[in-house]
Amino acid sequence: MKNTLTKSVAVLLFVGLALVPVLGTRAMVQDLFMVLTLLILALNWNMLAGFAGLVSVGQQAFVGIGAYAMFAAVILWGLDPLVGIAIGGVAAIVLAVPIAFFTFRLNGAYFAIGTWVAAEIVRLSLAQWKALGGGTGTSLPKGTTKDMFGVDLIKDALDMSSSAASDALTYWLALLLAAVTLVSGYVFLRSRMGLGLQAIRDNAEAARSVGVDPIRLKAAVYLLTAFGTGLCGALLFIQITRVTPDAAFDVVDWTAFVIFITVIGGIGTLPGPVVGVIVFYALQRTLADYGTIYLIVLGLIGIAIMLFARKGLWGIFTAKTGIELLLLRHRAPKRS
């Protein structure tokens, strides 16, 4: 019963969000686009750190490579940016293979810094790619986003300017990607593999003894989240339209914020990133003018959550109310 209700609310919310470009202002579309992309990054990072126990602080590697691959597709090979997004995702998964090979040798906590080093290596290497502007970066050619596949269609159907139509298109893609990430995360975690993953998190030895191979499972999650993060990176930089190594591989924008969103919302819980991104957006709106203070506040909240409520706001909520949405464990059969 409760699950059906949750699903209906989710579908309604999705439809409501999908209507924003039609009914809302362009500023709303652009704001929500940023929120949705952060949500996508947070969902991926939560899967990685919260469920697979792989605390990466180097996810900016995949945002950056996704962005650069998309730019290369558009500028060097003359492809449509939408194709560039797909290439961005593929580039990220290809990059993830050597990075995993190297970072998986580092154990536990050192894995975190290893991923960071990997991201730095990719950043510094791409800064040598002169065709894409080297260290100073480059912009999408004027009009690229307006010529994207589907922009004309939206423009005519909704009677809006082509830049508004391109905003709407990237927004819908972000919404779709967020929904797909959320749903596939849910389905994955309830699958055999997903339950195996949670078993590893709870007790690696026991999981191994029942035939779950932790390394392979974790590597699979690592590659898949790299793919999602790469897609998101490419999408983000269609909207931003200008790429530099420093911006594309920014540890604060693409990893620190994402970690705080997940931690505040509830790491290791599926609704956590959703709750986190809402709180994050609200904080950003109230504190954005204060710049550094905003980051200090985020950091302090993150520390406080880890000290006093490790499952974040969502954890507090479920503990207080007993309500669990998107239940991950199959219910044990009731004893009569």
Partner: peptide, 9 residues
């Protein structure tokens, strides 16, 4: 995560 938060702070 605590030391990461500390770094930002």
């Amino acid at each position: 995560l605590v030391t990461f938060g500390l770094s930002v702070v």
